Simulated assay, not measured.
Amino acid sequence: MNREFHTSSYSHSGGECVEVSEGAKTLVRDTRNREHATLAFPAAEWRALLADIDSL
């Protein structure tokens, strides 16, 4: 499966961030080690995490 990943608009050019691919399952990977493991989260859990972060 070929999915499009993106970084946050808050990321700097240092390459020390994660990339996200959103869909039914949200995939997260390390920008520096793209070939390594990818974490997968149900979309609802990912949205809940982002909402919690926004409330800080």
Results as ranks from 00 to 15, higher is better:
residue 5 F to C: 03
residue 46 W to L: 01
residue 30 D to F: 01
residue 52 D to N: 09
residue 22 E to M: 03
residue 34 R to H: 07
residue 21 S to K: 10
residue 1 M to L: 11
residue 23 G to V: 05
residue 36 H to D: 12
residue 18 V to E: 03
residue 12 H to A: 12
residue 47 R to F: 02
residue 49 L to T: 07
residue 48 A to G: 05
residue 51 A to E: 11
residue 9 S to W: 11
residue 8 S to M: 10
residue 52 D to M: 04
residue 42 P to E: 13
residue 51 A to C: 02
residue 38 T to A: 07
residue 56 L to D: 09
residue 42 P to A: 14
residue 49 L to Y: 14
residue 29 R to K: 08
residue 22 E to C: 05
residue 54 D to R: 15
residue 55 S to I: 00
residue 4 E to H: 14
residue 12 H to E: 13
residue 39 L to M: 06
residue 20 V to I: 15
residue 54 D to M: 03
residue 41 F to T: 00
residue 45 E to H: 08
residue 32 R to Q: 06
residue 50 L to F: 08
residue 43 A to Q: 13
residue 22 E to S: 08
residue 38 T to N: 03
residue 26 T to S: 04
residue 54 D to E: 13
residue 29 R to W: 12
residue 39 L to F: 13
residue 2 N to F: 07
residue 44 A to K: 14
residue 19 E to S: 10
residue 20 V to F: 10
residue 39 L to C: 01
residue 17 C to H: 07
residue 48 A to Y: 01
residue 34 R to Y: 06
residue 51 A to V: 04
residue 19 E to N: 11
residue 12 H to Q: 13
residue 9 S to E: 08
residue 40 A to E: 15
residue 36 H to K: 15
residue 34 R to E: 06
residue 24 A to H: 13
residue 8 S to F: 08
residue 11 S to E: 03
residue 17 C to L: 09
residue 17 C to V: 05
residue 27 L to N: 06
residue 41 F to R: 01
residue 20 V to C: 09
residue 11 S to A: 15
residue 17 C to M: 06
residue 7 T to Q: 15
residue 42 P to G: 04
residue 20 V to G: 03
residue 23 G to S: 10
residue 6 H to K: 15
residue 8 S to C: 10
residue 40 A to N: 02
residue 33 N to W: 04
residue 33 N to S: 08
residue 38 T to R: 13
